[in-house]
Design a binder for these strands. Structure first.
Length: 577
DNA sequence: CGACGGGACGC
DNA sequence: CGACGGGACGC
């Protein structure tokens, strides 16, 4: 537990020293797994090239590296590749969208997984998909499961929220597990939730039975239920050896398709028995994966022939393959498949046209999902909106407090921070006039800040950030994190706390700032100074002023009775050099 | 008015 | 079955 805590370090200065003292193993690991789950492991045909991968995967995000694995000595491709994305969510989406698809000129569909960290290798023993679906977060003790759910529903359908509670008092211990149905949603939450949640991907639970999930699978027959823990586990019970005797199809479609749309599509071929959308991640894979069963092998084969490669919705090709009881990756299963370079663009024309197929699916059908589908709908849009448009019209601080805007607000915060950093650099280089011409003001939207900022533009001499209404000294270095606290300040922000970068900058300018932080989900916090004088200067300058449109109260903090007497003594006796 | 930084799951 | 290379801040 003690060494684990070190992994959860929450201050960048801790992190640097942590890395610096490390011999190199950690550096190597982070290179491949930073951010977590951002690297794909792909099983593919041996002829698939790096360019094939680039072409089909670059739309999911920023590719940092593509590595098509070859045998060292012979140079012979092994049918395996790695793709490193910049972001966790990019890799997750790429996996969901590309798994099962064919690229290049090789007929074999890709198997796309999130790579394990390098030292774990290919172990697949435990809850393979849970590691991509479950987040572990810190939450204020006052938050209920419902509160947490409301905060996190904006990123996608939530399976469950579970707050860890004291087993006797039932009080929250201040952290929670959140499980999504799709890796990309968990990834979006991981990236987009308020940073005070300190999200990490939860360590999968050792080995929990899935009988609860079985119960919910309901009346649908599930011959493969026994091995659903592992999406790619081979199941030997129902093996069908020869071509033409299958009645079961595995379908991979756009996750947007709902059950009704899939049913109507496959019902065009007579003999449809049932159609099951795997929205339960424990069965096979994720949304967009379905099982379709016909009452005769002929119907199944016909459906595969007609619908495999069909674009539905346009631009999203269906994968339809015989379901050989999880041996679907055997090349033999695709002998007649024409996926690859020239899939039929309109197999549609060979199917008796009915009205049912014509309307493309609506953006996201209501009722297709279990919960919170409404809040999921805007997700794609939010992340695609160029943030600076919002910035110029809105400004970063007020009016974006709603839960729906969380993602946007995060993008905004990131952008504002980037601009702030760029501004500092430009200013440091003495190029303020360039900066002002380019309109690179750090964006305080409020009147006071603007007036001050324009004055600064004229002077072009000292750099006062436009987001603070006070006249500030130039930036100062922080005090070492382990400095003794000379004076601690209590900060109250009205109505909401400014972003951290602004707080750090502003409170840091009086020198000897050890740390400044805001209590999560509150509008107050503390600033710790290693010098009484610095702290008093901060009070004198900042009390009653505005930062990013928030009015600040800054005063000496009352001592913390709880922690002071007990905790400190333990620390001293323990942390002796 | 506005107060304390948190970290692993009842198997 | 399908799991880990090559290059390396610059001229």
């Amino acid at each position: 537990m003690a060494e684990r805590r070190k992994l959860f370090d929450r201050d960048s200065r801790d992190r640097e020293s942590f890395h610096g003292s490390d011999g190199g193993k950690l550096a190597r690991d982070t290179k491949y797994d930073d951010p977590p789950n951002s690297r794909l492991f792909i099983v593919c045909g041996k002829t698939v090239t790096e360019e094939d991968f680039r072409e089909s995967f670059e739309k999911y995000g920023t590719i940092e590296e593509i590595w098509v694995v070859k045998t060292r000595t012979t140079g012979e491709p092994k049918g395996v590749a790695y793709i490193k994305f910049s972001k966790t969510s990019e890799a997750a989406l790429a996996m969901e969208e590309m798994n099962g698809r064919c690229i290049g000129s090789h007929p074999r569909p890709l198997k796309v997984l999130i790579a394990h960290s390098r030292d774990q290798g290919s172990r697949r023993d435990m809850n393979e998909e849970e590691r991509l679906l479950r987040l572990f977060v810190v939450v204020p003790k006052s938050m209920t499961e419902k509160d947490v759910r409301e905060q996190f529903a904006q990123f996608g359908d939530i399976d469950y929220v579970s707050i860890v509670k004291d087993r006797v008092t039932k009080e929250s211990k201040g952290f929670a597990y959140i499980k999504y149905h799709r890796p990309s949603h968990a990834a979006k939450a991981f990236e987009g939730c308020d940073r005070s949640f300190k999200p990490v991907f939860a360590e999968p639970k050792p080995q929990k039975s899935t009988e609860m999930a079985d119960r919910f699978n309901g009346p649908l027959p599930h011959p493969k239920g026994a091995s659903h823990d592992n999406p790619f586990h081979h199941y030997d019970g129902l093996h069908i050896g020869s071509e033409g005797t299958y009645t079961r199809l595995e379908v991979i479609a756009s996750p947007q398709l709902n059950w009704d749309q899939l049913w109507r599509l496959f019902d065009l071929i007579p003999g449809l028995d049932y159609c099951h959308l795997h929205d339960d991640p424990k069965n096979r894979m994720y949304k967009g994966h379905a099982t379709v069963v016909y009452n005769t092998p002929q119907s199944a084969a016909y459906a595969k022939e007609k619908l495999h490669g069909f674009e539905y919705p346009p631009g999203q090709r269906l994968i339809v393959k015989p379901d050989y009881s999880r041996q679907s990756d055997l090349p033999g299963a695709f002998r007649h498949g024409n996926c690859g370079m020239h899939p039929p663009s309109t197999p549609f024309s060979r199917i008796p046209p009915t009205g049912a197929m014509h309307p493309p699916p609506p953006p996201l059908p209501a009722g297709a999902q279990t919960m919170a589908s409404g809040s999921e709908m805007g997700l794609g849009n939010i992340s695609l909106v160029p943030p600076h448009h919002q910035l110029t019209s809105n400004g970063p601080s007020s009016s974006l407090g709603g839960t729906r805007a969380g993602n946007l607000q995060n993008d905004l915060a990131a952008l504002v921070e980037t601009i702030a950093q760029a501004t500092s650099l430009i200013q440091a280089a003495g190029l303020t006039s360039v900066m002002n011409k380019a309109g690179l003001n750090t964006g305080g939207p409020q009147g006071a800040g603007d007036a001050h900022g324009s004055q600064q533009k004229m002077l072009g001499e000292t750099y006062d950030p436009a987001y603070c209404s006070a006249k500030l000294p130039p930036p100062q270095p922080l005090a070492p994190i382990d400095s003794e606290v000379a004076l601690r300040l209590f900060i109250v922000c009205q109505p909401t706390p400014p972003p951290m970068y602004a707080l750090k900058d502003v409170f840091g300018r009086f020198g000897n700032l050890i740390d400044v932080y805001i209590l999560s989900w509150k509008s107050c916090g503390y600033a710790k100074y290693a010098s009484k004088e610095s702290a008093e200067n901060a009070i004198a300058t900042l009390h009653g002023q505005e930062i990013c449109g928030s009015r600040m109260k800054v005063m000496p903090a009352e001592p913390n009775e709880k922690a002071d007497s007990s905790r400190k003594r333990i620390k001293v006796s323990k942390d002796d050099e």
